[in-house]
Amino acid sequence: MENAAKTQAAHIIEMSNIHKSFYIGTPQELEILHGIDLTVDEGEFISIVGASGSGKSTLMNIIGALDKQTEGEYLLRGIDVKSADDDHLAEMRNKEIGFVFQNFNLIPRINALKNVELPMLYAGDSTAERTEKARALLEMVEMSDWVTHQPNELSGGQKQRVAIARALANDPAIILADEPTGALDSRTGHLVMDLFHRINRDGKTIVLITHSEELAAETDRQITLKDGKIC
């Protein structure tokens, strides 16, 4: 009994027969994902690869509780995402998920520290807690010297490291990275990748979307999407 509960909890992502369609003006409906089954265990580092337009980002948005599937069941840490309301979804994204985007998506006009503090601000942490944790995270990604710099004063690699620090702010269960090295040169890309490996060794589950065969090969498991299906 206890054992069963434990196995249950170990599946951090459980997807069965996920379909996703977009309405592109009635009555047409465009189905992008055609029945995805995916299970990810706690502490795994998986990569999703596939051609452009195969539905990788679409799948990632569903995993990240930014979007809802049209059909099928998705449990994030045992919680049915589809039945959650807007604010509950926001809370799940805030506590359970850390996003890393291809184009960094730091908030302009506020410095690196404030950017890292933001998820904690929305979680309701005190100023002192936020500052302390944000500083520690920036140190971890080796950005201590750029704490007061604004995004437009940072290089791409530096921005991505700040973004990773921000993704880790609320100590989420999963890091979702959609082509995090896509806008970086290969050397910087490898540095970012090393960072992911370190984070993974610290116990975080990571889902990485990438076009690089080389980077995908470094992960525990590769999932290939083709025309909205896992193959």
């Binding site: 990240g64 807007d86 926001a90 809370e91 996003f99 998506n105 933001l118 998820p119």
Partner: peptide, 10 residues
């Protein structure tokens, strides 16, 4: 969009 992604409520 970014703020919402990192957990901002309405």
């Amino acid at each position: 969009g970014v703020r919402k992604a990192i957990g901002a409520k309405r």
